[in-house]
């Protein structure tokens, strides 16, 4: 196993000996430890069922680890509750594998939702929504119900919602699964832009082209265990 350490930057995510099991005796993650630096782009790879989505769910506090500790921005996220948890979640943007879009709301409303909860001004929300739609070539879909979009378009809307509130941590589950090469490039461009502005990005993916020639760190999971941690261009 190749070990690749984080740079000297402060850690945004600390995963320490984390395991997650589901009854009766399914081990989704076993003894995972990793540190992800602030502003880093980090890839999670592995076959379906390897534990990528489970790890993202633990990082976004959608689920709790069975054992171990996860810290985000120095906080044990599973001990944070109430308004503190809400504030923390406002700083974490997540694009889900199943998109979790409100299919009876428009594209603009879906993207705006993450900014509305942090009480952004309506004009700021409108301008940010338009800018994101332009970056993802979805300008003409502004007032379309997300239920009427194609899977690829829905995927991009989900990503736009994840990054809309300028979070410091962006978790992305299979961001390019339904996209053609052009759309994939647009999505990656958007994520790189977020990274350049200081956001930490964790991407779970099957798509080798995203990390193969990059210098970003890539963690391979196999049956819930850490199989390798290396640079993309070293694989």
């Amino acid at each position: 196993m190749t070990e690749t350490t984080t740079s000297s930057r402060t850690a945004m995510i600390e995963v320490i000996k984390v395991s997650k099991s589901y009854p009766p005796n399914v081990t989704a993650l076993a003894d995972i430890s990793v540190s992800i630096a602030s502003g880093e782009v980090f890839f999670l790879i592995g076959r379906s069922g390897a534990g990528k989505t489970t790890l993202l769910k633990l990082l976004s506090n959608m689920d709790k680890p069975s054992t171990g500790l996860i810290e985000v921005a120095g906080m044990n996220i599973h001990q944070v509750t109430g308004n503190k948890l809400a504030k923390l979640r406002q700083k974490v943007g997540m694009a889900y594998q199943d998109f979790r879009l409100l299919t009876e709301r428009t594209v603009a409303e879906n993207i705006a939702i993450s900014m509305e909860v942090s009480y952004k001004k309506p004009q700021i929300i409108r301008s940010r929504v338009r800018s994101l739609l332009a970056q993802l070539q979805l300008e003409d879909k502004h007032d379309i119900l997300t239920g009427d979009l194609s899977r690829g378009e829905q995927q991009r809307v989900a990503l736009a919602r994840a990054v809309a509130n300028s979070p410091t941590l962006i978790l992305v589950d299979e961001p390019t699964g339904n996209l053609d090469a052009t759309s994939t490039a647009q999505v990656m461009e958007l994520l790189v832009r977020c990274s350049n502005s200081g956001a930490t990005i964790v991407i779970a993916t099957h798509d080798e082209t995203l990390y193969r020639h990059s210098t970003h760190r890539v963690m391979r999971l196999h049956n819930g265990k850490l199989a390798s941690l290396t640079r993309g261009n070293e694989i």
């Binding site: 959608m62 109430g82 923390l88 979790r100």
Partner: peptide, 14 residues
């Protein structure tokens, strides 16, 4: 329910 769950995940307070 779906929307409320999402609101919670994007950081809406109780």
């Amino acid at each position: 329910q779906e929307e409320l769950e999402l609101l919670k995940l994007v950081g809406a307070t109780n």
